[in-house]
Design a protein around this nucleic acid. Structure first.
Lengths: 131, 131
DNA sequence: CATTTGTACTATCACAACTAATACAAGTGA
DNA sequence: TCACTTGTATTAGTTGTGATAGTACAAATG
């Protein structure tokens, strides 16, 4: 299947699902319009409660990542138009601060972080260069 | 004072303390050798239970950020030597992935993330240029 | 040796995550 | 229209974590 969950992780199951779907969409592994498994299917597949899947899907819908249609299923939303600095930029800012703070305590220089991030972007699966 | 805690946050209090201290150390606001408040002082100051502070300090000690000495107090550890790629690099890798994934769903381009991070590094309080 | 500082332990409360079971609502498709 | 599929809602119960409270202990200071 396309999802692996660790029930023993301290990260809630529904959050793991949210993160996994977000990452797959961002990397292009789940294209716009793709259909996700139904709540009941996924529940059987991962042997977890349907309510937990439902919670994850609701979270993803609030984030604007998927669209949920009763009787049909759930689908990946079209990508947002690129924006320079959205109001939620502070969330990204916070992530970046945490990144630099963690790096500092691991003895990693900011320059190395920057270079590694650049490299990661270059290798990003959904790169548009070849389109 | 030097710490503000939000008891209503979903982030555990002890975690807020850990994050705040780590950030201050990384930014140079808490220099190596600086003495932190005693557990009991902080507990009174923040009107929270001493056990909670103790938990935060233990976590910080495990992370190698502070050194705890009975009868004396707790002190900021000397900085780690700069390293290219430590074994814990995967933790940073994960943070960077999350950063790029979140950016994608906010409609922010990787290039903008990179530029903002560069800017953030330039403005980092503990910059060594003027030494 | 009194004091200061951190450590350890046990009990208790509150809350969030998860499970479970059931009933309901809305759209599909013949 | 009607059986079916799909998501939604509700209620109840279990479990684990965070936090409080109180007490006792250990180690270094001066």
């Amino acid at each position: 299947m396309w999802l692996s969950i660790d029930p023993r992780s301290s990260v809630p199951i529904y959050q793991q699902i949210v993160d996994a779907v977000k990452e797959r969409v961002a990397k292009g592994a789940l294209a716009s319009g793709a259909r996700l498994p139904t709540i009941r299917e996924l529940a059987v597949d991962l042997t977890i409660n349907p309510n937990t899947i439902a919670k994850a899907y609701q979270e993803l819908e609030r984030a604007g990542v998927i669209e949920v249609i009763r009787g049909k299923g759930t689908f990946v939303c079209p990508p947002k138009p690129a924006v320079a600095a959205p109001p939620q930029m502070s969330a990204l800012h916070e992530l970046m601060t945490r990144l630099l703070v963690e790096a500092h305590h691991l003895g990693v220089t900011p320059e190395y972080v920057l270079a590694t991030l650049q490299d990661m972007i270059d290798r990003w699966p959904a790169k548009k260069e070849e389109e």
